[in-house]
């Protein structure tokens, strides 16, 4: 609330939505994700300089509620892009255009990415640390899925 800008939190929310929709949508590429990772920090900076939250802290304040959420989204979307960039395969809703079969299906890379990953916050401005847990399949053999 100390920031004395003149834009509502919604303006930044919409802007972030556009970046995510265009560059980190269902189909994403290395270059689109890298672009998003450059644009999000810029947007985040302008949010913290230009947002305006009128009203009081100790009264019902929907703008403040929204601003707090948008601040979270700005951090989280960066992580989503980071993670999508790191996972160099296609898998489920994560379709990296570089990794597809000849007929346009998602192409997994089970040799390198058969794991779930979790990111650990390393402090403001630091790259988060990636932890991974291998997935083991005993009963079924991994295979390509086709919805055709």
């Amino acid at each position: 609330m100390a920031v004395k800008g003149n834009q509502s939190p919604d303006v930044f929310h919409r802007e972030l939505g556009k970046i995510m929709w265009n560059d980190c949508g269902m189909a994403r590429t290395e270059s689109s994700l890298k672009r998003a990772l450059e644009e999000i920090p810029k947007l985040r900076e302008s949010f913290w300089n230009e947002v305006r939250v009128p009203g009081e802290v100790d009264e019902l304040n929907p703008t403040l509620e929204k601003a707090l959420r948008v601040a979270d989204f700005l951090e989280f979307s960066q992580l989503v892009c980071q993670d999508a960039l790191e996972r160099q395969e296609s898998c489920g809703g994560h379709f990296r255009q570089e990794y597809q079969t000849e007929d346009g299906e998602a192409k997994r890379d089970d040799a390198n990415f058969c794991h779930v990953a979790a990111w650990e916050h390393q402090g403001e401005g630091q790259k988060p640390k990636r932890h991974q847990e291998e997935l083991e399949f005993k009963e079924i053999a991994l295979a390509q899925r086709s919805y055709k």
């Binding site: 003149n6 834009q7 509502s8 305006r52 009128p54 009203g55 703008t63």
Partner: peptide
């Protein structure tokens, strides 16, 4: 309203 510095 927010842009104009008023309460929404």
């Amino acid at each position: 309203l927010i842009h104009d510095g008023k309460e929404p």
